[in-house]
Design a protein around this nucleic acid. Sequence first.
DNA 1: CCATTTTGCTAAAACGCTTGATCAAACTTT
DNA 2: AAAGTTTGATCAAGCGTTTTAGCAAAATGG
Lengths: 359, 359
Amino acid sequence: MISQENNSVTPLGAAAPLERPRRPQPVTLRQVAEAAGVSTATVSLVVNKKKAARISEETRKRVRDAIRDLGYRPNAMAQTLVSGSSRFIGLVADAIATTPFAGQIIHGAQDEAWKHGYALLIANTEGNRELETDAIAMMLEYKVRGILYSTWFHRATNVPAPLRESDFVLVNCFSAEPGARAVVPDEIQGGRSATEILLKHGHRRIAFINATIPAPAKDGRLQGYKEALEAEGIPFDSNLVLEAFPDQEGGYGATEELLKRDATAVYCYNDRMAMGLYDGLREHGLAIPDDIAVVGFDNQEVIAAHLRPPLSTVSLPHYELGAAGVRMLLGLEEAQATAPTKIHCPTVERNSVRALAPA
Amino acid sequence: MISQENNSVTPLGAAAPLERPRRPQPVTLRQVAEAAGVSTATVSLVVNKKKAARISEETRKRVRDAIRDLGYRPNAMAQTLVSGSSRFIGLVADAIATTPFAGQIIHGAQDEAWKHGYALLIANTEGNRELETDAIAMMLEYKVRGILYSTWFHRATNVPAPLRESDFVLVNCFSAEPGARAVVPDEIQGGRSATEILLKHGHRRIAFINATIPAPAKDGRLQGYKEALEAEGIPFDSNLVLEAFPDQEGGYGATEELLKRDATAVYCYNDRMAMGLYDGLREHGLAIPDDIAVVGFDNQEVIAAHLRPPLSTVSLPHYELGAAGVRMLLGLEEAQATAPTKIHCPTVERNSVRALAPA
DNA sequence: CCATTTTGCTAAAACGCTTGATCAAACTTT
DNA sequence: AAAGTTTGATCAAGCGTTTTAGCAAAATGG
């Protein structure tokens, strides 16, 4: 039988499990009151800096000292219970935390919420309807001030029933349901801006590689393209519009067709297609932007900023969507009854476009 | 003076602001009790499905019906007040929501927390120490079960003082502070795995382009490289180790130097460097993987999966870090007293490596 | 049929805080 | 000096739950 020393360091690097210290009970208002020799009401009054309250400076000091000495922290749960509404805003997302794409929605919502003294409670549902219901239920139980319901790409959605029990705002999605406030990117303006980058550099034969899959983005970006051309008096030529699956492969695969169109510039439905197109063009010995100018859409940093040459594109304003969603929820920004509020998609110019050499 | 009809539809599409309906007060336990003709105690007992409680099936049904009819939802704040601890886990991040990179930490934490009935309260601090303190304070006030403190890249950190008032786990970072539990990626194993991808395809002259900036990753990935070589009996050749700034430009810029080393394969410190290197190699007319094999590190999806050819790499297990952090916090996974728990970095093989043709 | 146990349910305290009503003491007015 | 006012602080109710102790009625045992 092997006897072991128990009071020795565990041998052979088999590290000992970590002992967690027992946490003391948190300090309460009452304890502070006792320490300061006043009533809890008084402590509450000074903690909340009520200006109307008549508390002598001396007493205030005594209370503040006690608070500091004891390390008192108010119990937000108790406060909420009294006041009836918490300082939480819920964010339920279908895949936002998952995709690099739209994590900025969280970020924007977080910042804006924080600015107004609210904390963000998030739930990722992966599109699972049941999880979604549970998540919303949980938020309701925690008496959130309201809920942001967001999707990772711009689309129509149905409002889950329990959402209606709370204030809510749709972010990056919309619904025909009356009274549903929503914030979405302005795809049309974005499409216009993308095209304008090319136009202002003198391009006139501008191809557009659109997506094959239906989406508000598909229609909006095309319409923006048309509007921009029209504003310049350039007739729309449907020959210049191609369609491909909206990813790298799609962009790459569209190269051949594109080259037949004899355009001096291309506007791609998104940055990933542009990335694929870069490869395709390179294989044909074509240089960007000298032989052909390219703009993308989305401004997916990891791609757009680091392609060679860096890609001019139009930003999907995810951060702003999140922030605007919060403002709308808090009633700081007015919602329209008729349609979702549209957020501007800013132009990001890099080096994939150059002035067209005069013919 | 212009007179306006006030009872008409707002003209010219200047949409009317949306009227928000007044929300009714939430239903309380007491109301359910009254509706069901029982005491609040009884309702509470059936809501919480206490098996020990002796409530007749008939009464249970009556209560359940009342709950359904009134649309009752428990007030989690009141529950928390009684029980003393909420079902929240806090996640404070320096830039996680910002970077596509580590949003997966949120995701993993979220999923795991949810699995155990906890919700995630997040705060992004952008490294701002004051914001951080406020965020932690807020979490403490909401009586979180514990806090995950995470950084967007693996590094040493100081534990902010208020964090000690709660249970906490460091995620993707570590501290010398005794008793600080931590989860980090296993950089050494990752470096070994990356190198092994190349080794198993027959490569023997393997270059390593390391980062210039000091970090646990820099040391770990190098050590893994050495270990893998040693295991194969290949002597370490410091000539094969270059250093560059860990981004696309750095990778691109290292091309010339690399080619002087006459290696058949390169292992890059990260995917972004590999992306830059792709461009550099292409400009030299070199094909991947035929002329030279490349592996990266991090598995930044948007890059690695969509490069041409897709990049073989090693994953930074962000999702797992978040999930393991939560498990550790909840005491489901044991922490070592001596060192951070290391999470495995899985190999992801794609097409940037091919078996070395026999000489 | 009385004593005992079991069943079904309720009363009430507690959780930590906020806040309107009160009150005693110290000042001002007339 | 009596009446009124201001100042500084406290009392106590209430927010929506959970939970322990306890009580009456029904069931069981002898």
